[in-house]
Amino acid sequence: MVYRPEAVNTRRGTADATVPSVARVRRRWREGPHTWTLELEPEDGELPQFAAGQFNMLTAFGIGEAAISVSGDPGSKGTLVHTVRAVGPVSTALATLQSGDYVGLRGPFGTGWPMQEAQQRDVVIVSGGLGLAPLRPAIYHLLAERQRYGRVAVLYGSRSPGDILFRRELQRWRGELDMDVKVTVDHAPDDWRGNVGVVTSFIPRTTFDPANSVALVCGPELMMAFTVSALQDAGVRDEAIYISMERNMKCAVGLCGHCQFGTTLVCRDGPVLPFDRVRDMLTIPEI
């Protein structure tokens, strides 16, 4: 039984999913320390549809390939937006591409956030660090179809004020009357007037109906574990909690074995997984 909420057809132009097509960097802007957003357009052909939460494999030619979530608006056609943090050779090569440069592109792959299932329900989005990137398409979607959803809360934790991603969007979303946006940081200089502390502390202070809500969670594994227990304490059922997992990925199409997380292949069954499917494994070290 393979869980696949709303994954769109993942076949791209080339018949063989291991062969990238070519895309051009149209624009690039700095998002925060070591973190850049790239707007890509295809060299030829059309971009595939993607679902919020899916990822692509981006190749820096001659250097290597990395799994990068789509961070753009699923409703906008023609370009593809990715946010990359430079942490090693491949991500650095990707993050330092200039407009007019080329990347190899495979995807989109994996499962998306359960946007269908969340309709008519409250949506609680909890993210840490770069985990906001794969959730941003879900937020765009919620805004575009606002009337289909109940209350919407976006809770975001970042290391320091300087690390906060998508500042302008966060500000704009905060301005929306029917959206509850809360941001916190782990450490802050004295002149920071916002929240300091862990993102999970927002959960008891956020208004939503636990019996009729869906929670979308993405961030470091430990942060997700704490978030899940806070959501459970608030009365959210395990089946209504979705997390996005990260594992080493080479092929992204279920052939290379690298992304195994116990019973799942994260590239195929995830990255977005219902918590009740991974509950027993999350607490076991080194799975």
Binding site: F61, G62, E65, K250, C251, L255, C256, G257
Partner: peptide, 15 residues
């Protein structure tokens, strides 16, 4: 069945 991949380029960066 597990596999990994390695990327390579020539010295000129053209291949």
């Amino acid at each position: 069945f597990c596999t990994t991949v390695e990327d390579a380029s020539d010295l000129t960066g053209k291949e």
